[in-house]
């Protein structure tokens, strides 16, 4: 066995580098985010499915949804699975979603009035095995509930995206990836607070204007990610 073979092994981790993309038999597959530079920082080279991703924001209209939209669009076109929205704060607007390449026939919008029902519905969707992704605005901040959701995502091989308030950033979380999202001039600024197999990163800027101009069915992911500086 030469050094290269040794270094290629999945169970050998070199400092300063993320573990190699997981193999097929791993419970966690990954899904390109549509932003090259972000993929490079995510464990497995993309959004890890079969786990939770937490997107933390302060206030509305800051770009959290558009961060995951390219991946959702591609998923909707490659898998016959639901993309469930559990208790979204507003109407997910069909014209914009379709323009971003999302196949609307895969969309499932779930309205749950009471908080207990909301968390129940998120768990059902994650666990069912029929949702490729579950976008959720959980009511509970209880760590036990989050762990249940994480287990449900593993069971159902679903990508659970929890949109939560930045207030919860200090709380421990079972999510595989936690991101903080803030608006900036041309798009958003993303900071990875936690990722499996890697350290937190500093803020970096994602350019939406560029990313969304390309339909999700295109083979090459578009979009630029420029760590440490703002575009334009």
């Amino acid at each position: 066995m030469n050094t290269q073979q040794l270094l290629d092994r999945a169970d050998i981790w070199r400092g300063g580098r993320l573990p190699p993309a997981k193999r097929e038999d791993s419970p966690h597959h990954s899904l390109s985010s549509g932003f090259d530079a972000l993929d490079a920082l995510l464990p497995g080279g993309g959004w890890p499915t079969g786990t939770l991703t937490e997107v933390l924001t302060e206030g509305e209209g800051v770009g959290a949804l558009r961060l995951v939209l390219p991946a959702l669009a591609r998923m909707s076109q490659s898998q016959k699975k639901w993309i469930a929205w559990v208790s979204p704060p507003h109407v997910p607007y069909a014209p914009a979603l379709a323009a971003a390449g999302l196949d609307l026939s895969r969309v499932l919008v779930v309205h749950a009035d009471r908080n207990a029902n909301r968390d129940w519905a998120i768990e059902q969707a994650l666990r069912s095995g029929t949702c490729g992704a579950v976008l959720a605005w959980p009511a509970s901040t209880d760590a036990r509930v989050l762990r249940r959701l994480q287990l449900a995502a593993e069971t159902g091989h679903s990508w659970g995206v929890l949109f939560r308030s930045l207030r919860h950033a200090a709380q421990p979380s079972p999510a595989a990836v936690r991101l903080q999202v803030e608006p900036d001039l041309s798009g958003i600024s993303v900071q990875i607070l936690k990722r499996r197999g890697g350290w937190a990163t500093g803020p970096m800027s994602l350019d939406f204007e560029h990313a969304l101009a390309v339909p999700a069915s295109a083979t090459t992911p578009a979009g630029g990610l420029h760590p440490g500086r703002y575009q334009q």
């Binding site: 997910p92 069909a94 014209p95 979603l97 379709a98 609307l104 026939s105 969309v107 499932l108 919008v109 779930v110 309205h111 749950a112 009035d113 029902n117 129940w120 519905a121």
Partner: peptide, 14 residues
């Protein structure tokens, strides 16, 4: 069954 008959929808363009 739990949330009511009108709780689950799809989305369509008009």
């Amino acid at each position: 069954a739990r949330l009511g008959e009108t709780a689950v929808h799809g989305l369509a363009l008009v």
